[in-house]
Structures are given as C-alpha cells and as structure tokens.
Design a protein around this nucleic acid. Structure first.
Lengths: 198, 198
DNA sequence: GAAAATCGTCTAATATATTAAACGCATGGC
DNA sequence: GCCATGCGTTTAATATATTAGACGATTTTC
C-alpha cells in the first residue's frame, strides 16, 4: 500500500546497503584469509562469501555475524572499522624512532604521534626457526615492539617484512600477525601490548 | 564440508545474531512509531517488521538498513546504541537545577554531571498553539533548555510532559522531540544544542 | 611438464526472508 | 449498541539468500 515497490532490480538489495561486499573483501584481505578459509571458520559456504563480496546478495544479519565471528569482529566494529585510516605507519625504520631519556636511561619511543594507550612491555626471545604459528591470533588493542638482536620476519595483515636490529613495528592487534625467526642465530625483541591482553 | 550443519532450528537464524528484534522493538518504542508507520517510512511491510521484532527471521542488511533509514539511524549506530544508558535524567524539576554565578550574573546549570559537550544557546519564543510539528526531526548531539516564561508541552521519545517556568529538559538529540505551546499565553524557553546542529 | 591443490566464480536446488492480505483485539466516535 | 480506525500478529505466495557441487584459471609440487 505504500510505495510503487521498485521491483526492477538486477543486483538484489544492493542499492540500499552497498559497500558491504567491498568492506568484507577488504577485511578478508587484511586478515589474509581465502574465501574458503573464512567460510570454514564462519560455518557457511565459500560461494555465499563470493556472492556477498560481489554485492550480488544482501546477507542476513545472522549470516554476516557468522562471517565476522570468523575474524573475529563484532557487527558494530564492522560498520565502524575505518579501512583506510588503518594503513598509517605500520613499520618504523630505526632512524625514525623518537629517542627520549638520558642520564643513565635511554628509551626509544615507537609509534610517536599516534593515539596513545597504556602499553605493557614484554621481553621476547626467538630461537632459530622460532615461530608464533600460522594461526595468527588477534586481540583488541594495539601492539608494538623493537628488534634488539638478530632478525625477525613479521607478517601483519598480509604484509611481510624482515626487521633487523633497531627496526620496530606498531599495528592494531586486531589485525592477524605472526613472528618468525628465519635466521640461524637467536633473535630478541622488546614487544609492547595493551594491558587487557595479558 | 565444514560443520554438521545444525538444521534443527525452529527460530530461523536467530541463535546467531539475537537481540536484533529486541533492539529494533525498543528503538521503535523510543521513536514512538507503530510498526506500520515505520514500515511506510522504510518502504517495507509491517508484517516484516513484526517478524523481525519477534526474532523469527534474520533480516538482510539491505532490509535492516531500510528500516533504520526510517528513524533515521545508521547501521553502526544501531549496533552501538546503548538503550539503557539513555534513560538517565531526561526531565529536571526547577529545584534540582544547579545554580551558579553571582555578582550581577545568575546562571542555572542544566544536566550537571552528564558527559559534557560544547553547547550552543538559543532564545526561543512560542506563540499560543506554537508547534515545532509532528515530524520530529532528529539530529546528532545533545539538547537541553529551560522554560523562562509560560508553559510548554515537550514530547521526547514518546514521553510527554508539560514544563512550567523554571523547569528544564535535557536529552539526546537523536531521539525524536516536539515542542508545543498548549496555553493561551506566550512561552519563552532558553534552549541549548550541540554546535554542529546550527 | 603433468598432477594436485587452491583460488574465485557460477548454477540448480533448497532454505529463508519478504510481501500482500487477512485475522483478532482494542479503542474512539456517533 | 455498532461501525470505523488502528494496533500487532499470522499465513500462503513470492522474492531472495544460501547451499552443494561443479567449472576454468592459477599456483604448487613432484
């Protein structure tokens, strides 16, 4: 009784809530998952994810929730998550670290200029071939660190970099990450994460 | 190939993303709309809204977006909106206003103790039968005011109150609201709203 | 190179959401 | 009383989302 009900749509309910597919695709890329991997985690089929990413269907809330649980990520986060603003400054070369302290104590500030959070410092050692695993745990908060000795291969949201002594990193802990020592010698890094993690 | 696919569900995809129906119903109540009114605004049927509110179906993103557009409210807001924390202190009787100032200037602080925002003060006059209309505009931010002269009938999220001289109000501007002078004399109120509104 | 694995896509069959129209119930005139 | 209006719900028909399995293309492995 209301509207003339525009039924001449070829692309499903896409015109209403667009960008969903694009967002999902971009997110899946950040997490480095294939459609099938994500589908298995979510408990739905890969075909469904394919169709959703192409914006050829408008997923139900329950389906979208299942998918996001595979990351994991809440619905609120999904609609809030800023895909572009997350690319700023993941890697910090040694000479770009802000050096502070003095008088017997020397500190190098990583991620200076970013939104501050209370961080927790850890001292990590990696034996040759040491690896945090491919599972790529993700937890809320932020995470950063400095390589003290040796070299470490760091993967964050698909980006792979080998960091040497003095190099550093900083990223959103929700992005999947993996540390791996690909050298024959030991590696030592100082890592920092947000309090609620540990 | 993944899970045994639990198909023995009676309530659709409810078990996954629950609370959607409850949230929608509560929101619709706050906005004082019937299922049919909201359906007309959203461009879908009242039956669909009924089923969604009962959690008997899991709406598609496009449908949910249409529904929320009827308020209006974004998807991100929908999943973030705190229904309970919004009930605190809508009406402030005259004797509960915090009085500050002195030395020739007298101010009465409204909404003291709530999360502060930069506010913009307005001076409004309502002729007899003056009315902001039933359309009930909603805009982001917060809004408050004091009745200076006469009486004003204020409707906020379905709650109706007649405020007299000295009484005041404070509410989230996203909630639909309406001012109406139901007396034979003029009414004057000092209203305040967040900067981005005007 | 060829076989095997994995990628994203597509299609028919099925499950689910949405529609359109009725229902029962309450309320407000007259 | 009775009729008209509005409410939320339900039901069969229809539109849409999701599944299961295949496809061609690309990469991996031997």
């Amino acid at each position: 009784m209301a509207q003339p009900s525009t039924k001449t749509n070829t692309t499903a309910g896409t015109q209403a809530a667009a960008k969903i597919g694009t967002r999902l695709k971009a997110l899946r890329g950040l997490y480095g998952l294939s459609q099938r991997e994500l589908a298995n985690r979510a408990g739905i089929t890969n075909g469904a994810i394919s169709l959703i990413e192409q914006d050829r269907v408008s997923p139900s809330i329950s389906s979208l929730k299942k998918v996001l649980d595979g990351f994991p990520m809440s619905l609120a986060e999904f609609f809030t998550f800023d895909l572009h603003h997350h690319n700023n400054e993941v890697f910090y070369p040694a000479d770009q670290l802000k050096e502070i302290g003095g008088g017997g104590v020397s500190l190098r500030m990583v991620g200076h200029g970013r939104s501050r959070l209370k961080l927790q410092i850890l001292h990590e050692r990696y034996q040759p071939r040491g690896d945090t695993g491919k599972t790529m745990l993700s937890h809320p908060g932020e995470e950063g660190g400095v390589v003290v000795k040796g070299q470490i291969e760091l993967t964050v949201a698909g980006q792979i970099r080998v960091l040497s002594e003095g190099d550093a990193y900083y990223f959103d802990s929700r992005l999947p990450h993996r540390f791996r020592n690909v050298t024959d010698g030991p590696c030592m890094i100082i890592s920092v994460s947000t309090p609620p993690t540990f």
